[in-house]
Design a protein around this nucleic acid. Structure first.
Lengths: 209, 209
DNA sequence: GTCTATACATCGATAGAC
DNA sequence: GTCTATCGATGTATAGAC
C-alpha cells in the first residue's frame, strides 16, 4: 500500500512521505473547518489559508473539492472501523446489542458534519469513490455480522435495528447537539428491540426467533 | 392579514395580489429545483431563469437566499400541518400511533430536500425566522398531543418515539430513496413500540402505563 | 414597484511560468 | 511543487429608467 513502484522496494520515498504528510495536514484542517462551519460551508480557499498555501496549490494534493470530501469520507469510516475492532462483543445478545448501539450513537453524536458526510446525502453531486465506499461497506458488514452473531438473521429485523439506532443518532444531533437527551435512551431502545425480536424474556434471552 | 391600511378596507389590492402570486410562483420553482438538484444546490440566478426573471429582480420578493429557504421551510411545515388536520385519529392507541407514523414517514420519504430543510441542519448559517419556526412548533405540538391522547405522557417515551419514526424516515431516504424498504417496517416498528410502552397485550391495549 | 444595468467579493477550477 | 494569472459562475448589492 505504501510502495507501488517495483524498483527500490523498501527504500523510503522521502518525497512521497512529505507529500502524504502534507495531505494529512490538509485533511486535518478540513475536519476542523467542517466541524466549525458545517459540511457544506467548506471552501478550498479558506482551507488553503488554514494550511498556509495558495488555493491553487491544493490541487497538487486533491483533484477537486469532491476529492477532499472523498478522503474525509474514507477517514470517518476508517475511524468507525477502528472502534469496531477495539470493542469486545459479549456473548449475551442483549449486551452485544447495547455495546454496538452505544458505539454507533456515540460516534455519530460526536460530530455532526461527519455524520452528515458518512450517512446522509447532503453534498450536491458528491458520491464516494469505489475505494472509499469499500471502507463503508466493510463497516456495514462488521455491524451486520455482530447482529447475526446475536441471533438476528432476518433482514427486516436488521433494517428495523439500523432505523432505530440511526434515529437516536439523528435526533441527538438535530435536537440536542452536544447533550445526551437521546444517548440516555439507548438502553431503553435496545431493551425494546430485544423484547420484540427475542421474545418477552429479557434477562436471559436464549430463545432465538 | 390581507389589509393593514385603514382606508378602503375590503377592497382587493390587485398589486399585492399580483405580488403574492409571483412570490408563490418563485417558491414553486424553488421546490422543483431543490428536489431535482439537492437543497444545497439552489442558485438564485438559476431560480430567476426558471421564472423568466432577471436574477436581481428576485430581491423584490425575497431579501436574500436565506429568505427563500425560510419560506420553503414554512411551506413544508404548513403542508405537514395540513396533513395532520386531514387525518382521523383512532381512539385505539395502537391504531393512532400507526396512523401518525405512516403520515410522518410517508411525508418524509416523499421529498429528500424537504426533509433536509425541515428536520436537519444542513444549510450553513440558515435558521428559520420566528414566524416560520412557529409553524414548526405548531406541527410538533400537534404530534405530541396525539401521542398524549394515546396515553403517552412520559417525555422519554416520546423522545424514543420520535427517534424511531425519524430513523425510519432517514433510513428510507438514505438507503432506498423512492422505494418502500423502511416504509414497510412502520407497522412492525409501531407494534414494537406499543409493546414496550403499553405492555405485552397488543391486540387490545387498554391498560395504560 | 418592477425592471435593466452594473458593480463587487467569493467560489471551484485550469494553464503555464519557474 | 508552488506560484501568478485567469476563467466562468455564484451571492449580494446599488443606481436609475419606466
Amino acid at each position: 500500500m505504501t510502495s507501488t513502484i517495483p524498483a527500490d522496494t523498501g527504500r523510503r520515498d522521502r518525497r512521497r512521505d512529505r507529500h502524504d504528510a502534507t495531505k494529512r495536514e490538509i485533511l486535518d484542517a478540513a475536519w476542523q473547518m467542517v466541524r466549525a462551519d458545517g459540511l457544506n460551508a467548506l471552501s478550498l480557499r479558506a482551507l488553503a489559508r488554514a494550511v498556509d498555501m495558495e488555493p491553487q496549490s491544493l490541487y497538487t494534493y486533491f483533484a477537486s473539492k469532491h476529492a477532499v470530501y472523498d478522503h474525509l469520507f474514507a477517514d470517518g469510516n476508517h475511524e468507525l472501523l477502528t472502534r469496531f475492532e477495539q470493542i469486545e462483543i459479549s456473548d449475551d445478545p442483549h449486551q452485544a446489542l447495547c455495546t454496538i448501539a452505544r458505539l454507533f450513537v456515540t460516534f455519530a453524536a460526536e460530530d455532526q458534519a461527519r455524520y452528515e458526510l458518512l450517512f446522509q446525502r447532503t453534498i450536491p453531486d458528491f458520491e464516494p469513490s469505489p475505494e472509499s465506499y469499500a471502507v463503508a461497506t466493510e463497516v456495514f458488514s462488521r455491524g451486520r455480522s455482530v447482529l447475526t452473531a446475536a441471533g438476528l438473521g432476518d433482514d427486516a429485523d436488521f433494517d428495523l435495528w439500523t432505523a432505530l439506532v440511526a434515529g437516536l443518532a439523528s435526533q441527538q444531533l438535530a435536537n440536542d447537539p452536544g447533550g445526551d437527551r437521546y444517548i440516555r435512551l439507548i438502553d431503553a431502545a435496545v431493551a425494546m428491540f430485544a423484547e420484540h425480536v427475542f421474545g418477552k424474556v429479557v434477562p436471559n434471552p436464549d430463545t432465538k426467533a
